[in-house]
Amino acid sequence: MDTATPASGPFRPPVTADPTSAPFSSQDAGAQQTPGLRIAGVLAVRPVLILLLGLGLLAANLSLLYANALVVIVDLLALGIVARAMHAEGRRLRDLLGPWRWVDLAWGGLLLVIVVVGFLASNVVANLIVHGGAPPSPQTTPSIPLWVGLVGFLVAPLTIAVSEEAVYRGYAQPRLQPALGRIGALVMVAVVFALQHVGFALTSAPDIAAKVLTTLFAGLLLGGLWLWMRRLMPLVLAHWGLDLLLGLPTLAVALL
């Protein structure tokens, strides 16, 4: 059975002997032999659906900020795809998350600090590469209804966190490891994770580049944290907290 390797020093992630709490068990032959086409299908669902969502909003002459709320539909569809993939292995979707433990709150808080700092650093570096500094200020403030702001702040952060962590770190990354190795799987998942954000930034090529680079660096961080923790729930909690912060600007625009 695959168990987490404890980190040295005072910050030691919880070690579990419960095979259902680990996203990937070395004794689970079905998981080790997951068909590549199935993994590719799970990885592709979010990038494709979010791109279609963004293109649809532009075709309807609506702000891409609508995607911050409508992405909830994508999240639910992606979770359904993961559930079907897990069912094909004789397992359930909740097996990716593992049993709830109150200590996950503490670990989630610690990871939230790491993720927020890492995301801010990723954003700064990406904008330096693309814009040579801070991104240009938008010429106009888009107008969006209040429901978009409320859903984008109150609902979407949770569904995004659960869906993205289930798809990328929970399902795909450990199943790519036997073929690609730890680093190869980490990089592959981070690249797809970054590409899914193209649909949120279709207004200009620099916006797309900055968004992809920011989320690429963030995806590498999230994948690295999964390798360290080997438990998904603390990472879901940290991701949820980050997206709550990222949902504040959408809510603020809706309240204007």
Rank of each mutant, 00 (worst) to 15 (best):
F119E: 07
P14R: 14
Q177I: 12
Q196I: 00
G118R: 04
L52Q: 07
L256H: 14
D243N: 15
A254D: 07
E89H: 15
L225K: 07
E89N: 11
V116C: 04
P6D: 05
L225I: 14
A4V: 07
L97F: 15
L64I: 10
T159V: 13
L256R: 15
A238R: 01
P157F: 01
Y171E: 03
L150V: 15
S143A: 14
A166Q: 01
V45I: 10
L245M: 12
L70I: 14
T250Y: 09
A4H: 03
L225T: 10
P14I: 11
L195T: 00
V130M: 08
F200P: 00
G109H: 12
L52Y: 06
G90M: 08
F200N: 02
L43Q: 02
P47E: 03
F24E: 06
P157Y: 03
A254M: 13
G184M: 11
T140S: 13
G132A: 11
T203G: 07
V167F: 00
L221D: 00
V42E: 01
P19Q: 04
W226Y: 15
W226A: 10
P138Q: 07
T5M: 12
G9F: 13
A106S: 12
R84D: 08
Q27P: 05
I73A: 15
A17C: 07
E89S: 09
L222R: 01
L150C: 08
A78R: 01
T3R: 14
W228D: 08
L111Q: 07
D104Q: 12
L213K: 05
L128I: 12
V130A: 05
E165V: 01
L96V: 11
S8C: 09
S143M: 10
V151S: 10
G149D: 06
G241W: 02
V187M: 10
G181S: 12
V192D: 00
D207C: 03
F193N: 02
L246T: 02
W102G: 15
R230Q: 15
A210M: 05
A78F: 00
V103G: 12
A22C: 11
T140P: 06
V103K: 13
L244K: 09
V167D: 01
S204T: 06
W240M: 06
G56Y: 00
V72I: 13
A185V: 06
P35R: 05
H197K: 02
G9R: 12
V151R: 08
A161Q: 01
M233G: 08
F24S: 04
L227A: 09
I183A: 15
Q33P: 08
Q177W: 02
D243M: 01
L213F: 02
D95E: 08
P10Y: 13
D104E: 11
A172C: 09
V130L: 06
V45C: 01
V151G: 05
L216K: 03
V187C: 07
R231F: 05
G133M: 03
S8P: 10
Y168T: 03
A31Y: 05
L51C: 06
G90Y: 09
I114G: 06
K211D: 11
P13H: 14
W147G: 11
A252D: 08
G118K: 04
P6Q: 04
I160N: 00
P206M: 06
V117Q: 08
L180V: 03
G152E: 06
